[in-house]
Structure formats: structure tokens, C-alpha cells
């Protein structure tokens, strides 16, 4: 098991190769590839319009942060990207989410297939009450993986920077880990299904600062291969980890729908935003 090439090693080589491309990520001169795009998305909960007309093109192998005051629809928007809103009986989505030119909301699209391409990590770590090994193996098997499971488990755990901490206790319950480790297990589990896009809804909000830093470092590794969209209420985190930032806010038309007011490179959003509301928000003057 030890002399097999691991995903982490692959990532290392990739990262050296990709370095010049990622250091000044998001400058206008670079050709950018769209991984997934929202096209005039409206989302309703019953009669309440939670999201009003959001369009955004998410660039491949970049980290896109969605920020904004609480209740402005960040989670709702994020969950539109892998059809998690399907589980809310009252929720209704209008508009298109395009993945490889395919509208994920077109009739005939299987949401289960969508979620295999667009994985999700949640706010509260939610490992299954199974062993660490099985948390990952289950996810992989679900997606039809029939290869060397030991190898995949190790690779996924290495890629999630968790291998060294758990390699001697793979048979222990995933619930026996600390919060930060649990969250990395959930990331490992998501990696094991080999998605293209990973959605993260405030993945660090239940974690202590050290665990948070670990996850943030991990995200930098992961973006070499995956497109990441992260919702965060933590301004510094958005500034630290993301390449692009989407600023959401409630509309002022009295309907209190969430909408996208600015979407740009992260350093633009944080240093010279075009919208006054963005400036107030990122400088903490919002409210």
C-alpha cells in the first residue's frame, strides 16, 4: 500500500506544474474556463422569493467564495448547484444551472447523477456512523467504484490531509474523530466520488481556528484539481482562500429576496469594490 502513487503526490506534481498559473489567479489576461454557471436563477420557498435573478459563471479550478449577510440566500444559492433544494418540498427553482452546457434543471436530468459530479460538504461535519474506512468506501462504491478500495481510501484521506492522523484507526467510527477531523473526513469522502465541483457551506463555522486553517490549506491543494464554491460568513476567510468572490445581499424592493450585487476577483472585491454596499460590508460597516 505504501509504495503506490498517491493522490497527494499527484497533486504535488500538479501543483508545481500549475504554479505560475495559480499565483496571480484571476487576472483579466488569463483565459478562464467556466466549470458551472448559473443563468437567471430565481428560487422560491412557496410564495417567498429567496433568490432573485442570479447569474454567475464559476471558473474551473478556482475557489469562489459566496459572502453576504445572514439570510441573504447564500446556502439556497449554493444548494441550487447540485439540486439539494429538491429535498425542500416547497422549494422551486427557475432559470438554468449549466454544467458542460447541460441545464441541470432540464426535464430528464437525474439529480442523483448531478450530485455525483457536484459534491457537497456541509456546515456541520456529518460523517456516517460507520468506520472511517467505510465512510469513504461507501461513497466510492455508491458511485460504482470497483477498483482497489484500500488504495482509494488511502488516497482520499491523504488528499484530505487526514491520513497520518487516522491511518492506524481506520476501523474506528468516524464519529470518534474531532470536529476538524470529521470535516476533513467528509471532504475525503467527497473526493472519493471524484466530483468536478465541490460545494462547501460554511465548512469551518463549527471548527476551532487551528482546524479552520487546516481546511483552508487543504482547499488550496484541492483547487489544483477541483472547482470549489464556498459559502462563508467570515470575511477574512473569503479574503484568504478565494480567487473570486460573489457578494450577495437582500434586494431593497421590500421583497427581501437575495441577489448577487457584485462578482469579481477577490482582491477587487476587498480593495476596490464597485458597489458601495460591498464596500460597507467587507469593511465591516454594514448594518
Amino acid at each position: 500500500m505504501s509504495n503506490t502513487p498517491t493522490l497527494q503526490k499527484t497533486i504535488m506534481t500538479d501543483s508545481t506544474r500549475l504554479k505560475p498559473l495559480t499565483t496571480n489567479a484571476g487576472t483579466a489576461s488569463e483565459p478562464s474556463e467556466t466549470a458551472i454557471a448559473a443563468n437567471h436563477i430565481n428560487i422560491f420557498y412557496g410564495a417567498f422569493k429567496a433568490i432573485a435573478d442570479v447569474s454567475m459563471a464559476v471558473e474551473a479550478r478556482k475557489i469562489t467564495a459566496i459572502i453576504g449577510p445572514s439570510g441573504c440566500g447564500k446556502s439556497t444559492m449554493l444548494r441550487a448547484f447540485n439540486r439539494m433544494n429538491d429535498f425542500v418540498p416547497t422549494a422551486r427553482v427557475e432559470g438554468e444551472i449549466l454544467l458542460h452546457g447541460q441545464n441541470l434543471y432540464a426535464p430528464g436530468v437525474d439529480p442523483v447523477e448531478v450530485r455525483r459530479r457536484v459534491g457537497m460538504v456541509f456546515q456541520k461535519p456529518n460523517p456516517f456512523p460507520k468506520s472511517i474506512y467505510d465512510n469513504i468506501a461507501w461513497a466510492a462504491r455508491l458511485n460504482g467504484y470497483r477498483g482497489d478500495m484500500d488504495k482509494l481510501v488511502e488516497e482520499s484521506l491523504r488528499a484530505a490531509a487526514l491520513w497520518d492522523e487516522v491511518k492506524d484507526k481506520l476501523k474506528q467510527s468516524g464519529l470518534s474523530l474531532s470536529g476538524g477531523q470529521q470535516q476533513r473526513l467528509c471532504i475525503a469522502r467527497t473526493i472519493a466520488i471524484r466530483p468536478e465541483i465541490i460545494l462547501m457551506d460554511e465548512p469551518c463555522s463549527a471548527l476551532d481556528p487551528i482546524a479552520t486553517i487546516k481546511i483552508e490549506e487543504l482547499m488550496q491543494e484541492l483547487k489544483q484539481r477541483y472547482t470549489i464554491i464556498i459559502v462563508t460568513h467570515n470575511m477574512q476567510q473569503a479574503a484568504r482562500v478565494s480567487d473570486r468572490t460573489a457578494m450577495m445581499m437582500l434586494t431593497e424592493d421590500g421583497k427581501r429576496s437575495g441577489t448577487l450585487i457584485e462578482f469579481d476577483d477577490t482582491n477587487v472585491i476587498f480593495t476596490r469594490p464597485k458597489d458601495k454596499r460591498t464596500e460597507d460590508y467587507v469593511s465591516g460597516r454594514f448594518g
Binding site: 429535498f87 455525483r116 456541509f122 456516517f128 455508491l142 458511485n143
Partner: peptide, 13 residues
Amino acid sequence: PRTLREGAYGLGA
């Protein structure tokens, strides 16, 4: 917990 179900759905279960 609902979060456990969501975890499974989020992996394409």
C-alpha cells in the same frame, strides 16, 4: 439527523 441524510444525498446516493 437530517444532516446525515443530506450527507448521503450530497455524495450522489
